[in-house]
Amino acid sequence: MEHVLKQDTHVAHHFSDAEQQRDSAKLGMWIFLITEVLLFSGLFTAYAVYRAWHPETFINAHKFLNVGLGTLNTVVLITSSVTIALGIRSIQVNRRKQAIGLFIATLVLAAAFLVVKYFEYSHKTHLGQLPGKYYTFTGIEGTDPQVFFSVYFLLTGLHGLHIVFGMAAITWILIRTINNEFSPEYFTPAENVGLYWHLVDLIWIFLFPLLYLIG
């Protein structure tokens, strides 16, 4: 009975019922995810263009990326996608405590990803493998190696920014779960954050081979 009451308070005046509201939110989220894909597609295009122009440079430069750390981060992110999916599942079957635990696990994994990224970035900064005019490294053969690092930093940087936004969103649904605002009938925000997190994960799955595993 209590669930029903809760559910009704979540239906805004301009929706006729909870189902219409949930459908709308989900459709809106999917459209938003499309815009995210297109945002990254611009950078992927830049990647494709410069790799087509300087294939040698890209192959030589990518050897300076740490495949081990990249693989580690791939595993970390895939695991975090699993934990958030399980967390949402826990809400659906009304296991609030379990959901809280899983959301916290997701946050920890996301933070771990950023820590690994931090080590990679600082190593490159140290060597001068930096974008554009800050590039001072001399050990890479081929034309314009700095462009590879521009593309690398832009892609991973924008992706890292999305990880940070995702962590904020996960924190938000974590707090709402703690406050018992979700129920098996109403969990749309958690579901949408989950979708977003899967997309961030998916983008990394493209980034990893394109940057770390060339040739």
Partner: peptide, 19 residues
């Protein structure tokens, strides 16, 4: 979104010289 990334790249170009 494509305009977004384009203008962002332009800003980065001016501010950081990403090339």
């Amino acid at each position: 979104p494509v305009l977004g990334i384009t203008l962002l790249l332009l800003i980065f170009e001016r501010v950081f010289g990403i090339g």
